[in-house]
Design a protein around this nucleic acid. Structure first.
Lengths: 160, 160
DNA sequence: AGTGAAATGACCATAAT
DNA sequence: ATTATGGTCATTTCACT
């Protein structure tokens, strides 16, 4: 790892307007962005570059309808780890990260140790993945799956 | 609401390559995208437009480091609803959606009815939000909070 | 290919410290 | 005065026809 992120940058209201706009539409051209926040294109681009440089903006992503990819099932697995040496834990984590079905994984406080966001084409595929590939990993003491029935509030990013 | 999305579009390998590329970098210019997938810019753009038109791509988003926004705490609340008439449920949902702190909310199978993704500046702010604003909503039978300790695998979108 | 727009960078203006 | 930040313009690059 080379680049240590600096962080003197306190975000002012202009920065925040830029972030808000790009969270709504990450593909805005600089010209359109500048107009939206009421600023000339050049200083707007300067700020945008600084925000990227400082890692405030870490990237851009196209949002895709998972159903049209054939992924009919979205689930969360609540995983409780067996107490085992850190080595095992590390290897488990590595395996977990490698699965395409695992969208994201976070270590948590509380009842479960890991919150694993999973996608699969259908329930059968999910079952096979969970039983054959997840639960067979050494180091998992317990796992419960919950399936997404409906998205009540879709993720639109952080409040800025 | 006017536009009903059509969905005949079966995605071929070229479409998928476009989606993969834009999930990694949503701000790729059409020229760069075309080069990456080994195609001439013009047909590439036509496909991109079609993907947007069909709602396969639903939007674009800048990814922002929440910490630099001052949001030090990320949590999930596992909410169990009280049995109550659909009216109450609807009103609860509306209230939930209105909170800036609520990043996303999904109806789930299993132990909890709602999985609520929440962000706050610090633990104190989270506590205040959870106790004063969430738990006071009528219709919540039970709620447990878990805090994100570490992101083991960050969300990079769906497998394509 | 060619047209028009957008990104980029040099330079100046201005305001706050 | 100096630093930080916005505006203007000229040039290059790029997107779309």
């Amino acid at each position: 790892m080379t680049g240590t992120s600096k962080a003197p940058s306190r975000l002012d209201e202009t920065d925040r307007r830029i972030l808000r706009a790009l969270q709504r539409n990450g593909r805005l051209t600089n010209a359109a962005l500048a107009e939206e926040i009421g600023m000339a294109p050049s200083p707007c681009l300067r700020r945008l570059k600084a925000l990227e440089e400082d890692g405030v903006i870490s990237g851009y992503r196209a949002l895709i309808d998972r159903r049209q990819l054939g992924h009919g099932v979205e689930a969360y697995a609540f995983v409780k780890l067996a107490q085992s040496d850190p080595d095992w834990r590390t290897r488990l984590i590595e395996k977990l990260k490698a699965f395409d079905e695992v969208i994201s994984c976070q270590a948590m406080t509380g009842e479960c140790d890991l919150l694993v966001h999973i996608v699969a084409d259908d329930i059968e595929a999910y079952g096979e993945f969970a039983m054959q590939r997840l639960l067979t990993l050494p180091g998992i003491a317990d796992m419960r799956s919950s399936f997404v029935l409906a998205t009540i509030k879709p993720d639109r990013g952080w409040p800025v």
